[in-house]
Amino acid sequence: MSGKLVSLSRARKARDREARRAEADANAAKFGRSKSEKARDEATSAREAARLDGHRRDEE
């Protein structure tokens, strides 16, 4: 049984550090946008919603 010795506390801390970094990256992508990017995304979603509603069939 010759394997690499691993400190469990260091492994746990490294795992937690990576999880926090991933969460921070997700938040940066979600909230770290300029005003024009937010407006563009909002306009795009409104345009897509209007297009989808335009294809709605009337129920009689």
Rank of each mutant, 00 (worst) to 15 (best):
K35C: 08
A22P: 00
A22W: 04
E18V: 07
V6G: 00
N27W: 09
G32A: 05
E59K: 05
L8W: 08
R12V: 03
N27R: 14
R10I: 02
D53T: 05
R40W: 01
L52E: 10
L8H: 04
A29C: 09
S2P: 03
R15P: 01
S9G: 02
A14E: 09
A49E: 11
E23W: 13
R56N: 04
T44E: 10
R17I: 04
F31C: 04
R12G: 00
K30Y: 06
S34D: 03
D25R: 15
A43M: 01
K30Q: 11
D41Y: 01
D53H: 14
E18F: 03
L8G: 02
A11D: 06
K4N: 04
L8M: 09
G3S: 15
A14K: 08
D58R: 10
K38L: 15
E59I: 11
R40T: 08
E60M: 12
G3Y: 15
R56M: 15
D16E: 11
L5F: 12
D58Y: 05
L5E: 02
D58W: 02
E42G: 06
N27F: 07
R20Q: 06
S34N: 05
R56S: 14
S36I: 13
E23K: 07
R17G: 12
A14W: 02
K35N: 06
R33I: 08
A19H: 05
A39D: 15
A43Q: 00
V6C: 10
D25I: 06
K38W: 09
E42S: 06
D41N: 04
T44K: 01
D16W: 03
L8Q: 10
A39F: 00
A11F: 02
F31L: 09
G3W: 15
K13L: 06
A24P: 00
A11H: 05
R21N: 11
S36K: 13
R56K: 11
A24N: 11
